[in-house]
């Protein structure tokens, strides 16, 4: 019997080897090759894609969204109110919505939750040609101001002027391009517009260097662009919200630390934006304005995107004083408008 091969043991050894090889190969394949389940989400900006949104693109470039199982598509928008509707009909999961619309939606029984501020400083400003002599709020007395239809400034400006004891004024509303072109070409003859600071690079590129009054610098600093989702979506998919918000603000932080690189990444991802010197200059200007709006004292004290109850209460009160809602929101209601929980 000695020296005789044991046929059963040999077969067992081969079978064991094959099973082990299959298991190891399967695990290896799963870890390295098996496609992970990816969640597709759409994010709506509040306007066409321009330099202000550059801070989102490093996350795309470095695959940070993909790393957490998200396939993110950024879409241009047509304003904050339109984005509320896009959230409601499910076209997008996240959108740029102004604080004003979140408050109004709440009173209409639509629950939206702000998951991070993008404009921590309110971007509404009054631009005035030098010849108007307007340098500070009191100079607006007796003047006509051109505002853009559907813009936050329509709600904010009367309250701002009242706070500044300016009572004799006229507001003319036009659509946004007409407002901007009219101001730049001085065709309106009034030389004063109230709109967003994000268009300053466009104005300056045309050779006009207006005086600027920030409403936020005179005590009217309410939430403008915040990244928003539906509250029911947040409850049902808190893991997705957590991943998206965390990666997005990581991208914001990286962009602030590597501004030139972040801007180049943005331009690479948006080839439709002309890459000539003039356009790059305007887009860079818009990127820098975006940084100014997000990199505030509050953000530095806490984290980028951090929101405060006081400022949300101010936002709610402003909406009430502008007669857009019949009663101010309660503290509980205001608290339900936002969460800092998912910020990194």
């Amino acid at each position: 019997m000695e020296g005789e091969k044991h046929p059963i043991n040999k077969k067992l050894a081969v079978a064991t080897f094959c099973i082990l090889a299959l298991i190891i190969g399967g695990v290896f394949y799963y870890v390295y090759y098996m496609p992970r389940s990816v969640t597709s989400i759409n994010v709506a900006f509040d306007w066409f894609i321009y330099g202000k949104f550059a801070m989102f693109y490093p996350a795309q470039q470095f695959g940070w969204y993909k790393d957490v199982g998200l396939d993110v598509t950024f879409l241009p928008g047509a304003g904050s109110a339109d984005n509320v509707k896009r959230l409601l009909n499910g076209e997008v999961q996240f959108a740029f919505v102004d604080g004003i619309q979140i408050v109004v939606a709440k009173t209409l029984g639509v629950n939206l939750t702000a998951v991070g501020a993008y404009h921590d400083k309110n971007p509404v400003v009054v631009y005035a040609w030098n010849w108007t002599g307007v340098k500070e709020p009191k100079d607006l007395d007796g003047k006509t101001i051109i505002t853009a239809m559907g813009g936050d400034e329509n709600a904010m400006l009367p309250i701002f002027l009242k706070k500044q004891n300016v009572t004799d004024y006229t507001i003319n509303t036009v659509d946004f391009p007409t407002q901007l072109n009219g101001f730049i070409s001085n065709a309106t003859g009034y030389g004063i517009i109230a709109t967003y600071v994000t268009v300053l690079p466009n104005i300056e590129a045309s050779g006009v260097h207006p005086n600027i009054i920030w409403l936020a610098d005179y005590g009217l600093d309410v939430y403008s662009n915040v990244i928003t989702c539906r509250t029911d979506y947040l409850k049902a998919h808190s893991d997705i919200v957590a991943k998206f918000v965390n990666v997005t603000y990581r991208s914001v932080k990286w962009s602030l630390q590597h501004q030139a690189q972040a801007f180049n990444i943005f331009m690479t991802w948006n080839p439709s934006i002309a890459n000539d010197t003039a356009t790059r200059s305007v887009e860079t200007g818009q990127f820098n304005v975006g940084i100014e709006l997000i990199n505030t004292t509050i953000a530095q004290q806490h984290t980028y995107g951090y929101m405060t109850l006081i400022k949300w209460e101010d936002t709610s009160n402003m909406v009430y004083y502008s007669n857009m809602i019949s009663a101010p929101l309660t503290v509980d209601q205001v608290q339900s408008l936002y969460t800092n929980q998912y910020l990194p």
Binding site: A81, D82, Q101, V104, L108, V110, M149, G150, N154, A155
Partner: peptide
Amino acid sequence: GNYIVAKQFNL
């Protein structure tokens, strides 16, 4: 038209 735009803003 102006009314529609204003109401759009107010949702």
